[in-house]
Design a protein around this nucleic acid. Sequence first.
DNA 1: TCAAAAGTGTTAGGAATACACCCATGG
DNA 2: CCATGGGTGTATTCCTAACACTTTTGA
Lengths: 296, 296
Amino acid sequence: MELVDRDGLTEREFLEQYRAGDYERPSMAADMVIFTVTNTEADNYRKLPEKELRILLIRRGGHPFLGKWALPGGFIRPDENADQAAARELSEETGVDDVYLEQLHTFTDVGRDPRTWVMSCSYMALIDSSRFQLKAGDDAEDAAWFKVSYRHLREQKELLDEGYVKTLTYELKLSAEGEELTAVINRTVTAKPTSKSVVYAIMSNDGLAFDHGKIIASAIERLRYQTNETDIALHLMPKLFTLTELQQVYEVILDKELLKAAFRRKVANLVSETDHYTENGGHRPPRLYRRNWEQA
Amino acid sequence: MELVDRDGLTEREFLEQYRAGDYERPSMAADMVIFTVTNTEADNYRKLPEKELRILLIRRGGHPFLGKWALPGGFIRPDENADQAAARELSEETGVDDVYLEQLHTFTDVGRDPRTWVMSCSYMALIDSSRFQLKAGDDAEDAAWFKVSYRHLREQKELLDEGYVKTLTYELKLSAEGEELTAVINRTVTAKPTSKSVVYAIMSNDGLAFDHGKIIASAIERLRYQTNETDIALHLMPKLFTLTELQQVYEVILDKELLKAAFRRKVANLVSETDHYTENGGHRPPRLYRRNWEQA
DNA sequence: TCAAAAGTGTTAGGAATACACCCATGG
DNA sequence: CCATGGGTGTATTCCTAACACTTTTGA
């Protein structure tokens, strides 16, 4: 027995006659914060290179925000979902497929794009830097990998009658050759007896397009959180790596020094030792490790 | 000095002449999993009522999925963001404002709505059941609060050459007066050397519309996670409550019995004692607590 | 008096923290 | 030999799981 609606139509008949209304619809973009970790060269015998956390930005060649830097991304097409759109954009920008991708948050504020109604479904991606060439801008467009610094500046908490308002202020600094972008971002938590909300606000912004400062901030917070709680940071490592390299990656993500012994115990279950070593010269050669798939 | 683009336009001039292209755009809905906790009546002297976790569903009155049950929600309007749309829908459905709302995930699979291209930005909401009338369907539409059961059925893990595939199978049961909906949902984690992805799939589904089984499953997982890690469950409590009631709420969310002493220590910082007590009859009267705003 | 629930103390084990120490290398 | 980094052991602190126990009430 087939159900019919109040017009006497079956579902099949309904779908055949269905025409989408012409009310206004938003454009949906998938924008990505692509993280990688690179080495600084600083090899004067007995000094190891340091690590830097970097993200890919693209200089806008047209209005709006002409000349400002924006996250890579693009509109989702009708024949793909958001994950596929993100993977496609990532492949187009960097030439790399099969990458760790995680959906973060969907940004929908009115007026976030001055042209028209555009929402952004944001993603973070993690790539081992050995998988691509650092010069991403092989076509005309101007792309660069910016070193990331995201630091807590101050905290302000106000107790209300019932509830509180807590504002954390962060400074986001992005730097590449000759370019230095700075933004100050507030993360405000408002708690009341029945509700609780978290709002990001851009207090100042020098050089970033749209609301991408918010997206980058939330991506960094997510990356830090996941690094502490999961094995996600291993996606930034090549097949074989030393534990000191892994620790440096953790440190540059978390912007915090870690104790060696404790770190090694923490990641012990995430990696397996191999029989290979590197020669670094001047020190005891470190053992190489790989990911361990048995656990978790 | 004003920047001009390759057509010689300033940003202001560009925006004035800008016309949105007529490529296809998706509709964007905000759909909500609204949780509350209710008491069963079972007061035969010396027995306290038990708690049940419930969500609001609405029976579809038209195609597609005529007669099936769907999450409350609606399309986002051009003059509001997704949070505001969710709050507006929530107020329309339940009459309650100022509620805990959290954005979850944006579902974008092709074909998830058979009519047209529709994405869903999903939210979870937590309401103390004393704040609304249980009969939400005061207008024509058919709404009901369904008791939630979400149980782990089995786990399957396959080790690959490099990586693994882990599938967790869950049974989602929703029950209201005379209605019993069941869905089986797989959560598959695929880990490879360079990537990792989590995919939800509906294996069977009896009575739920669209992909709402996935949305409900991810909301329950988020609620459980947040209950363990934060004070979020307090949004389900009235102003004054006993610690046993709070523990019952935790237990019904987590589907797990907790030890009293450990629970009390865990929530000690989240609540403050008051000088009020309830009389339950037959037992020692429990002290009433309220939220503590000093902490966290 | 007693069943049912409120509420507290005590112990054991595991994880993170902090520090101290030894090992290996090549210039 | 020694600076530099690789690598390990141990004591301390903290959190939580587990269990045992006491208190209070109204029929």
